[in-house]
Computed example of a mutant assay.
Amino acid sequence: MPFIKVFLVALVFILNLAIAQPSWAGKDFTKGTDYTEVTQELNQLLTVQNNPEQAGYTPEELQARLSQLQSEKYVMETAKKRAQCFNQTGRTLGVYANKPKKSPTQLYFLAAGQITDDDWDCDGIYLPAGTQVVLTPNGEPQELTEAIAVKFVDGTQSIARTNPTTGAIELNVAPAKVFKAGEGTWLLPTLSQAQIDTQVPSPELID
């Protein structure tokens, strides 16, 4: 009888492991602040689509902005994982991340070749002054004169990679927002890439 009880307990434990859902399962990104902001702006711009100057855009600029917002909306409606950042720059990368209900968004350091764990939300990336960066797919490299933080919407699977020809950091998706020091609520320290390279990567991001 004791053996049967032990067997049944073990069987229940194994079944629970087999059917247990990952921490992000069932996550509805359409209930977050990002989704609300994107849909509100999208709806507002659609009302002036025939008169883009009312929103301060040229027709081409308005169409580009609408396309980006529609893409962000689609990401949040279809994403199955929390936002993750993949560092393919070959150097240490500053990333902004939070662990839902446990740790607020702050700056961490992600080693080259690493991706943040899906228990975390990787909200964005820190780029120091002097960085050559391409902020949009098919865009042109620009050298930053001051540090910036780029923010992605919930569910974004972002990749930062270094172009071997130009040496510029390229992003696979356009950021939803770009912050400079004094803008937004994220801390933007004054760090060079050389200083970032000396930082110990944050082990909790990849657990």
Rank of each mutant, 00 (worst) to 15 (best):
M1V: 11
P2G: 05
I4E: 14
V6P: 04
F7P: 00
V9W: 06
A10I: 13
A10Q: 12
L17H: 06
A20G: 10
D28W: 10
G32D: 13
T33F: 08
D34C: 01
T39Q: 09
N43S: 10
Q44R: 13
G56F: 06
Y57M: 15
E61G: 07
L62Y: 02
Q63A: 12
A64Q: 09
S67K: 10
L69Q: 07
S71F: 04
S71L: 11
K73N: 07
E77M: 12
T78P: 12
K80D: 12
A83V: 08
F86M: 06
N87V: 08
R91T: 12
L93W: 03
G94H: 06
A97Y: 08
K102R: 11
T105I: 11
T116H: 03
D121P: 03
D123I: 10
P128M: 04
A129F: 09
E140C: 02
E140P: 06
T145W: 01
V150L: 04
V150D: 09
S158W: 05
I159R: 11
A160G: 01
A160M: 12
R161D: 00
N163M: 03
P164L: 01
G167I: 01
A168T: 06
N172Q: 08
A181Q: 14
E183M: 14
E183Q: 15
L187Q: 14
T190G: 03
P201L: 13
P201W: 10
S202W: 15
S202L: 12
L205M: 10
D207T: 15
